[in-house]
């Protein structure tokens, strides 16, 4: 485990995200022991996590699916390179994130803009929103969706990954390594304020 650069908050992983990681390790072990169903289970547990991590990079659905498929093929072909089964979840998300970042840099952003527009549409309009957003889900979404892009991505990655590698995240977000922790803290603070303002909590 890399040591924490910031000491802002103790970095205990949220309880819920621990589950897929433990399940992934168990499934990986079964697969390595010769049970093909272990691979099926590993894919079932980790594909949703990879989806959210990869989609944080503004990739179209098709591009995201390609990245995820390449990640699985890489795992199958290099499984002997994973010496610590406990690390398999982290290996998968790191591999997917690298590829997503590479892909997001190399493809035109145009199709992705459409996606983002579509996602952003529900929060457009203002005065009526307060009335229309009677549903708590809408208010929560408006708060998360209204965050600055950097916060949106950082929090989505952090929320779905167990312990993202800060060094790589920093490179991808164009930030100094030491500032990821504080930035995460500021993003969470922004979200807290947005939620309160939206009356979502």
């Amino acid at each position: 485990m890399p040591s924490r650069q910031t000491g802002v908050e103790p970095d205990e992983p949220p309880a819920r995200t621990n589950e897929p990681w433990a399940q992934a390790t168990a499934a990986f072990n079964r697969w390595v022991a010769g049970d093909p169903a272990g691979l099926d289970d590993l894919v079932a547990v980790m594909t949703p996590v990879l989806w959210h991590v990869v989609r944080a990079y503004r990739l179209s659905e098709t591009a995201a699916e390609d990245v995820i498929q390449n990640t699985w093929l890489a795992l199958v072909r290099r499984r002997s390179a994973i010496l610590d089964p406990v690390a398999v979840g982290g290996w998968l998300t790191t591999t997917a994130r690298r590829e997503a970042w590479r892909t997001s840099g190399s493809t035109a952003a145009t199709p992705v803009e459409d996606d983002d527009l579509a996602l952003a549409l529900p929060r457009q309009g203002s005065a009526e929103d307060a009335v229309v957003q009677h549903d708590e889900g809408d208010r929560l979404w408006a708060a998360v969706d209204g965050l600055p892009e950097r916060c949106r991505r950082l929090l989505r990655v952090v929320a779905f990954e167990n312990r993202p590698d800060y060094r790589e995240l920093a490179t991808e977000l164009g930030m100094p390594v030491g500032s990821i922790g504080p930035t995460r803290g500021r993003c969470l603070a922004k979200l807290r304020v947005a939620l309160i303002e939206a009356g979502g909590i």
Partner: peptide, 16 residues
């Protein structure tokens, strides 16, 4: 907060 973030994305950009 992170749980809210997860729930929100699971609902608004669900896994195909």
């Amino acid at each position: 907060l992170l749980e809210i973030v997860r729930d929100v994305w699971e609902r608004h950009d669900p896994v195909p």
